[in-house]
C-alpha cells in the first residue's frame, strides 16, 4: 500500500503532458511521467520515491505505436515488453526484454519505463545501443529526434519536462545476426549478474552490457578489441576486461570477481558463435 497521496492525470497529447509537468514544477510540486508505472508503484510503496503527481502517458497515441514505417521500426515508449517480444519485429530486442522481470510483469512494464529505470540494469537499452537507435523526445510543442547514444550518459539525460515518446531503429538492423545472453544469480527471474546484447554489422560485432558496471554501456574501444580477430579469443577477452568503463559491480547479486568470471564465459560464447556468422 502506498502511504502518501498523489494526483493522477492521463493526458492525451504529448504537449499537454509536458505542460502538466512544467506547471506542476512551477508550483513547486514534483511530477513524474508514468508509463507502465511498475517501478513508481513499488518504490512509492517502500517510501523510496515521493511525488505529488503522476502523468500517465499511455493515453498519448504516439507513445503506443509499434510498427515499421518506411525504413524504420518505430516503438512507442509505452509499448509493453511482451508486446515488443510478441511482435517479433526486432528479434534481438525481443530476446532481451523477454528476460526482464517475469512474464506477467512484462505485460505492464514498458520499454520507456525500463529505459528510465532507477535501477542500474535497464536491459532494454542494450539492443537499442547496438542498433544505433534514435529517440523521439517531446517537450511542450517541441519534439526532437536524436541518437540514443548522444543522450544516454549512464542514464537518459532529458531536459526538465521532456519525455521519451518513441524509439526509432533503422530497419537494416532488425535482422542482423545477433545474440542476447543473460546470467542471473540462480533463478531465471532475477536481476542480471551479466546481461549482454550483440549483433554483427558488416563483419563487426556491436555489443552492449548490463549488470557489469553501475550503468549499461556500449564501448567502441571495447568493440575494437573484441573484433580484432588476429588475436586469439581468450586474449581478446582478457584485453577487453581492461577496457571496461569502470570497476565491475560488487553487490548481493554477485561479487566483482564472480561477475568477471561470468562475463568472460559469456563473451567467449558470444564471440565464438557470432564469429561463425560473419
Amino acid at each position: 500500500m502506498i502511504a502518501f497521496d498523489f494526483k493522477y492525470i492521463k493526458p492525451t497529447t504529448a504537449k499537454e503532458a509536458s505542460k502538466l509537468f512544467l506547471n506542476a514544477k512551477q508550483k513547486g510540486n514534483k511530477a513524474m511521467f508514468y508509463s507502465g508505472g511498475t517501478e513508481i508503484i513499488t518504490l512509492a510503496r517502500v517510501n523510496q520515491l515521493q511525488t505529488d503527481m503522476v502523468i500517465d502517458i499511455k493515453g498519448i497515441p504516439e507513445c503506443n505505436v509499434l510498427e515499421i514505417r518506411g525504413n524504420e521500426l518505430v516503438i512507442g515508449s509505452t509499448v509493453s515488453l511482451n508486446d515488443i517480444a510478441k511482435s517479433k519485429l526486432f528479434p534481438l530486442l525481443g530476446d532481451t526484454v523477454q528476460r526482464i522481470a517475469d512474464h506477467t510483469s512484462r505485460n505492464k512494464i514498458t520499454i520507456g519505463g525500463n529505459l528510465n529505470s532507477e535501477l542500474i540494469y535497464k536491459e532494454g537499452i542494450l539492443p537499442l545501443l547496438v542498433a544505433d537507435a534514435k529517440v523521439k523526445l517531446a517537450k511542450g510543442l517541441e519534439q526532437r529526434i536524436v541518437s540514443l547514444e548522444s543522450i544516454f550518459k549512464k542514464q537518459l539525460e532529458l531536459e526538465t519536462g521532456e519525455f521519451l515518446v518513441q524509439i526509432i531503429v533503422d530497419k537494416s538492423y532488425l535482422d542482423h545476426p545477433h545474440m542476447a545472453k543473460k546470467r542471473t544469480k540462480i533463478s531465471k527471474v532475477g536481476y542480471p549478474v551479466v546481461s549482454v546484447a550483440a549483433l554483427v554489422k558488416e563483419c563487426q560485432i556491436q555489443i552492449a552490457f548490463s549488470g557489469v558496471c553501475q550503468y549499461p554501456f556500449r564501448s567502441f574501444k571495447l568493440e575494437s578489441v573484441l573484433n580484432d580477430t588476429k588475436v586469439p579469443v581468450m586474449e581478446r577477452i582478457g584485453t577487453a576486461m581492461q577496457h571496461l568503463p569502470e570497476d565491475v559491480v560488487d553487490d548481493i547479486q554477485g561479487t566483482k570477481a564472480y561477475r568477471t568470471f561470468v562475463l568472460r564465459n559469456v563473451l567467449k560464447d558470444i564471440l565464438e558463435e557470432l564469429e561463425l556468422t560473419k
Binding site: T184, K185, I186, S187, K188, V189, G190, Y191, I252, Q253
Partner: peptide, 25 residues
C-alpha cells in the same frame, strides 16, 4: 540452492523482499 539472508557489516539485512531473495520457481 538459493535462500539466505545477506547481512552487511552493520547486521542490516540486504535482501528484505522477494525480489532479492531468490526461490525456486
Amino acid at each position: 540452492t538459493s535462500e539466505k539472508f545477506i547481512f552487511d557489516e552493520h547486521g542490516v539485512v540486504q535482501n528484505t523482499g522477494l525480489r532479492n531473495y531468490p526461490m525456486l520457481r
